[in-house]
C-alpha cells in the first residue's frame, strides 16, 4: 500500500498498518531495561528514571531485576575484567530480542580508566552493542537520546530478509562465550566473532 492511499484512508477514519509495523511499534514502546548498574554512570541512569527526566515517558520505566524479563541491557559504567564474565553471562540469560546500550566512556572503551590492568577496554569486545553514548558520565538527556535512537532502530527493523533482527534468524547466535579468568588476563581477551581490532591507518 502506498503512502498516498494510506493517508487518504486515514482521512476517512480508516487506520491501516502492516503486521511488521505494528509488531515493531509494540516492541519499541515497551523496552524493559535490566536493573543493573556498574559504576558512576549508573547514578545518572537512576537519575534518568527519576522525577525530573522521567524515562517512563518512553515506556521504559520498568527496570527488571532479573535478566530473564529484560529486553535491554544498559551497560552503565566501567566493566572490569573481574566483572566481564558476569556481564556476558547476564547478557546470555536475557531472552531475545535483546539490545545493549553502552553508556559512558568506560563501557565504550575503558574511558578514563583505560590504562588500568583490571579494566576491560570496552564491552563490545565480548557482546554486540547497539547504541554507544559517549560522556563521562553522559547526562540523563544523552541517555534519553540513546534510548530514542534505539527505538528508531527497532522501528525500522525489517522482519524478513537478510537484515532481519537476530531473534528472527535461527542461524544467528543468541549466546556468546563467557571468558574465563586466567593467570594474567581474561582468556580469551576478546571474542573475535564480535570484535576486531581497528586498523591503524595513520602512518606511524
Amino acid at each position: 500500500m502506498n503512502e498516498g492511499l494510506r493517508s487518504e484512508l486515514s482521512k476517512q477514519g480508516i487506520f491501516t498498518t502492516t503486521l511488521g509495523d505494528l509488531y515493531n511499534w509494540g516492541r519499541k514502546n515497551s523496552v524493559w531495561p535490566l536493573q543493573f548498574g556498574l559504576a558512576c554512570c549508573a547514578i545518572e541512569m537512576i537519575a534518568t528514571t527519576m522525577a525530573r527526566y522521567d524515562l517512563a515517558r518512553f515506556g521504559a520505566e520498568v527496570f527488571r531485576p532479573s535478566p530473564r524479563q529484560a529486553d535491554l541491557m544498559i551497560v552503565a559504567g566501567t566493566v572490569t575484567k573481574k566483572m566481564a564474565p558476569q556481564v556476558v553471562r547476564l547478557y546470555n540469560q536475557m531472552p531475545e530480542p535483546k539490545y545493549v546500550i553502552a553508556m559512558g566512556a568506560c563501557a565504550i572503551s575503558g574511558g578514563p580508566f583505560k590504562q588500568g590492568y583490571n579494566v576491560l577496554k570496552g564491552i563490545d569486545r565480548f557482546i554486540p552493542v547497539d547504541v554507544h553514548i559517549p560522556g563521562c558520565p553522559p547526562r540523563p538527556e544523552a541517555l534519553i537520546h540513546a534510548f530514542m535512537t534505539l527505538q528508531k532502530k527497532i522501528e525500522t527493523q525489517q522482519l524478513t530478509g537478510v537484515n532481519r533482527p537476530r531473534h528472527l534468524d535461527a542461524e544467528a547466535p543468541s549466546e556468546f562465550p563467557v571468558p574465563k579468568f586466567g593467570g594474567h588476563d581474561l582468556e580469551p581477551p576478546n571474542n573475535p566473532a564480535v570484535w576486531h581490532a581497528p586498523k591503524l591507518v595513520r602512518e606511524p
Binding site: K82, K114, Q115, Y117, N118, K121, F181, G182, G183, H184, D185, P189, N190, A197, P198, L200
Partner: peptide, 21 residues
C-alpha cells in the same frame, strides 16, 4: 580474582598487552 598470578601494584608489574587502540 583467585588464580591471578601477579601483584599488580608492584612497580615492576607488566600489564597484559590487551591492545590499546
Amino acid at each position: 580474582w583467585e588464580g591471578f598470578a601477579d601483584h599488580p601494584m608492584r612497580k615492576d608489574y607488566v600489564e597484559p598487552d590487551d591492545y590499546e587502540y
